[in-house]
Amino acid sequence: MAEQRSHQAELAHMPQGHAAPSTRTYINIFVVLFVITAIEVLAAYMTDIGLPLWSEIVTLILLSVLKGVLVVMFYMHLRFDSRWFTALFAAGFGIAVFMVIVFLLLWAYKRSSGGLVV
């Protein structure tokens, strides 16, 4: 018990508890996010210079995933917080990605098989 109390006192002095990032880090992350967004806007013109559509889609999705990961890890503190929060978010996100992929596959299949096209 005594140990626990002293630990809490310690926490009161050092509010972030863990190695929470500094203002500097937050600003750096913002700069990176800004740059990625700029690259994304440029990447949206990949097909216009003759690159295949799939390469544009893959590039854009990878870049946005990178952005999302940065926001979640640093701004939402998952990198410094309990693994439980990460697990909770990952479970929802996993089901979400699965849902979108299966929906796209189902409708692509529907179109390709000509059954219920349009």
């Binding site: 978010f89 849902m99 979108v100 929906f103």
Partner: peptide, 28 residues
């Protein structure tokens, strides 16, 4: 873990699926 924060994260993953259903609708 703080109760409220744990609840908020649970709510956020639920919300993620709400937007997922809307995004999937847009895409299909």
């Amino acid at each position: 873990l703080n109760n409220r924060k744990l609840g908020l994260w649970t709510f956020i993953s639920s919300e993620a699926l709400f937007f997922t259903a809307l995004v999937a609708t847009y895409l299909v």
